[in-house]
């Protein structure tokens, strides 16, 4: 369960996010919708413990993320949270397999090539395990990024505009893969891509002007 209490975030005098209280249940798969500047990315970063909110508290299960610091917070993020970025930024010097293994290592988990290969296989990428990211198509790279996100079986998966640079067919495929791979975990996808609504009906809408949440 992901829970926000009286959450607000400001950059200087400007309020960019006013969520108030929001609770997302275990296993929920939801879209985080809203126009540019509505604070979608900020909310994801706060949920991942990458950004400390100006006000309010954030809970992941029984842990208060806003009360944690440093290495402890890094550890929770590595083991319990998975993030898919808009720009994939696979590490170019590493192979596809190593890009997945690095997630295991970063989380402090056992580095297990078998598990990593199995994850790549589920996403149809095991044949390219030794390839470098520069040789992959955008759709293939997106699958590797998803494999990197889910290999540690996180409790919470956050995706920031994962379909923004994909065509319709690839966008739908990526969304369906995310939903499949996130089974059992909470999935929150920040997007302004209307195509996502057809795949994931549950939504949280952030309004830019009033910063009012409509769930």
């Amino acid at each position: 369960m992901l829970r926000f209490e009286q959450l607000r975030h400001r950059y200087g005098e400007r309020t960019v996010l006013d969520v108030g209280d929001l609770r997302i249940e275990d296993g929920a798969q939801m879209l985080l919708l809203g126009p540019s500047g509505s604070g979608k990315s900020s909310l994801l970063h706060i949920a991942a413990g990458l950004l400390r909110p100006t006000e309010g508290r954030v809970w992941l299960d029984d842990m208060e993320l806003t009360g944690m610091h440093g290495a402890a917070l890094d550890r929770v993020r590595g083991r319990r949270v998975g993030i898919v970025f808009q720009r994939l930024h696979l590490i170019p010097s590493l192979s596809v397999l190593d890009n997945v293994l690095v997630a295991q290592y970063s989380a402090g988990n056992k580095v297990d090539a078998g598990v990593a290969m199995e994850t790549l296989d589920r996403l149809g990428m095991s044949a390219k395990a030794k390839a470098k990211p520069s040789s992959l198509s955008l759709g293939e790279a997106q699958r590797v990024a998803i494999a990197r996100t889910v290999v540690n079986r996180p409790r919470l998966i956050l995706a920031d505009e994962p379909t923004s640079s994909l065509d319709d067919a690839n966008a739908e495929q990526v969304l369906r893969l995310l939903c499949e791979q996130a089974q059992g975990a909470t999935l929150l996808i920040a997007t302004h891509d209307a195509r996502a609504k057809a795949v994931i009906p549950q939504q949280v809408i952030l309004k830019a002007a009033a910063q009012q949440v409509v769930a």
Partner: peptide
């Protein structure tokens, strides 16, 4: 810097 930020987001500590 983005690679390092990604590593941090994956759980790698500052240290």
């Amino acid at each position: 810097q983005y690679d390092l930020a990604v590593l941090r987001s994956l759980g790698v500590s500052r240290g």
